[in-house]
Design a protein around this nucleic acid. Sequence first.
DNA 1: CGCTGCCTTGATCTTCTTCAAAACGTGTGG
DNA 2: CCACACGTTTTGAAGAAGATCAAGGCAGCG
Lengths: 254, 254
Amino acid sequence: MASRKRDTPLRREKIEADACSPALRLRILSELPFFEGLAERDLERINARFRDLGFHTGDTIAREGDRAERLYIVAVGTVRLSRYAEPGQSLLVDVLGTGDFFGGMAGYGLSRNPDTATALTSSCLISIGTDHFREIIVRHPSVALRTVERLSARLDTAREMLRQLMGFSASQRLSFVLLRLAARLGEARDGETLIQTPLSREDLAAMAGTTTETASRVLSELSRQGIIRSGRGWVAIRDSEALSAEIPNSRGLD
Amino acid sequence: MASRKRDTPLRREKIEADACSPALRLRILSELPFFEGLAERDLERINARFRDLGFHTGDTIAREGDRAERLYIVAVGTVRLSRYAEPGQSLLVDVLGTGDFFGGMAGYGLSRNPDTATALTSSCLISIGTDHFREIIVRHPSVALRTVERLSARLDTAREMLRQLMGFSASQRLSFVLLRLAARLGEARDGETLIQTPLSREDLAAMAGTTTETASRVLSELSRQGIIRSGRGWVAIRDSEALSAEIPNSRGLD
DNA sequence: CGCTGCCTTGATCTTCTTCAAAACGTGTGG
DNA sequence: CCACACGTTTTGAAGAAGATCAAGGCAGCG
């Protein structure tokens, strides 16, 4: 309706490819909740085990089915974890921001990557061989605990999504996905929460377990109601109350 | 059709309520993959921290929303983890057998039980306070690693189920659930794999994210094709090849 | 500008849920 | 030991939600 040539609120900052050069790595490491509270020299030793890697939008960071021999931590940017389903279909498992990790965690059970990771924006990650990470876990109980906690939380999230996916309607699921994304990646901007992670309708659909068309319809309807605004590659939530109200007994995640 | 008064292959052994009395606990503990490789005296110390609990069929072991202050490990029997959805609806998150654990793993993120646990059979569990378990993790790196690995595997399973739930048809999902159950809880019995865990059609439906009626229809159809046999509270898989073939690029889980 | 790809919208059609009722098993009490 | 009564399972028919198929519109980019 009243959708004139409105501002496209996209203001994507270019990320320097060398944003996490070796020099900066130590600082990044020390700020990760993961390694919080570790002694300076332990951090240095750990830092020496890490590698840093820059990626451009769309680059593949790790591929489903490859040997899982590295653990990755997102330092800057956002990363998309997806899992192949049918030809053409894929489930968008998660969207990761700064501090999130993925990749070969287990040495035994999961010898191969269960998911494909791609860079949604120019990103930079740090990575470490699983062997070395295991070593760190063994050496630093606090890291072990932290890892267990993060994994538990993620497991809960995944199960919560399962619950949502089954009982809820497509539009409820979409609303839920938007709230989840807003909470993790949203930026407050004059009263709205802007999600400027470049997620296509197809991506959103994949997160909600529905089709591109349905996703589009739902977003249109929400816009019509003034609950959100959206455009190509961005969504802004204007009334998150109303959005939450769409979802029966929802729970915050992550 | 040819479904005459066939044998009900149920042979459910009664489980003594005291099957895991303190005396037996040590043995059980030492056989858990979890604590494999620990020294005798470490095991004894750990054992001292554990409590043992017996449950009858249908008993509630832990309730969704309660404070998560204990970790449980299934010693004997099977346990059902479910999560409330809509009034009347619930998602059956998982079915646990010997050696599986659940409950408060994280101290921070998950201060409350995300799931309700009920005993599917007479079961006996051992449990430990989360604080004590954290202590064990800190003290015994091998347990930490094992925990991380188990959690990773579970996370993967949950995500795999997510993938299934979205792209697949109800019958494919059901087939998948049956295979999963068979792999974890099935017993080989003259050429068939028998799942004698007393799961109702409603339970199966909840695992597959569908309704009782649809579950029933699908099982009927599979029986008609000779792929399975089923009755009240049991399913036997006669041709797991055929069952797998129902599912596009499936993956083993857990 | 005109192309290419993304997004929107419409119409049809399949699948699954929902509502309803009958058949079956199981355990119970006579 | 039999018969009844309950809950589970099965089956049927109608309905709704969403997938699929098919165009048309709009933004960004060369």
